[in-house]
Design a protein around this nucleic acid. Structure first.
Lengths: 112, 112
DNA sequence: GAATTATGTCGCAAACATACGACATAATTT
DNA sequence: AAATTATGTCGTATGTTTGCGACATAATTC
């Protein structure tokens, strides 16, 4: 039972799943929304915005950073976080295409 | 430490997070993709398509059913699963709007 | 009505996520 | 150089997800 069978699926599906996992917690959605209003937010400001402990917010930030949706630039003691627009666009496009093909029943010719 | 602080966030963010959680496993993405090609798939056919045990596939199906993205219609011993197009569209639109506002920096006026 | 078929639920184990306090580090101010 | 400030990492507790075999149920076929 060598766990986590996620890698046996198409890489396209893995990519969609990865992005969605990053967005699967409201705190992370809130962080992205906040960064879309206020670029170059320092970590401390984000923490004030999100009603969770500093530690937990920091963890969520690392999670978003890990998948590349945000970037952190060190500025003295502070860290400026900002959105990675390129990656965000690329990923959201991936979902958009998937969403379109699934929700509009484009492929139904095959069996119905 | 009364766990899971998800409910303290805006319901909009919770909705996005819920949908994304449903899509956060490649098996579930694969199931939706399959159902978009083949409506009225019986459970057994889906199981054949997904390289996981019948039990696990069944669980993923229940997960998708729980958030309403798919529906199961009993037909004798068999169960026909199909996409819930209305809900899919509604949910994907939610993400599309969020994605647009985040990835296009529409709101940046506030601080930059 | 016994055997078969299709499906779902239960119970378990391993893994992963969430949440936070305590500690570590490194820049800045005093 | 001591105190303060900003941030990240570690350890830990608890909760959730993933994966599966075993069992339960209910329709169909023999």
């Amino acid at each position: 039972m060598t766990f986590s069978k996620k890698d046996i699926f198409k890489s396209e599906y893995q990519d969609i799943a990865s992005l969605c996992k990053a967005l699967s917690h409201p705190a992370r959605v809130a962080i992205l929304a906040h960064l879309s209003k206020c670029c170059n937010c320092i970590s401390g400001d984000i923490t004030k915005e999100i009603p969770l402990s500093r530690t937990t917010v920091s963890q969520h930030l690392q999670e978003l950073k890990k998948v590349g949706l945000i970037q952190g630039e060190i500025d003295g003691v502070k860290v400026n976080y900002c959105l990675n627009y390129e990656l965000l666009k690329k990923n959201f496009d991936l979902i958009k295409v998937f969403a379109k093909s699934v929700s509009e029943g484009e492929n139904l010719i095959k069996c119905c």
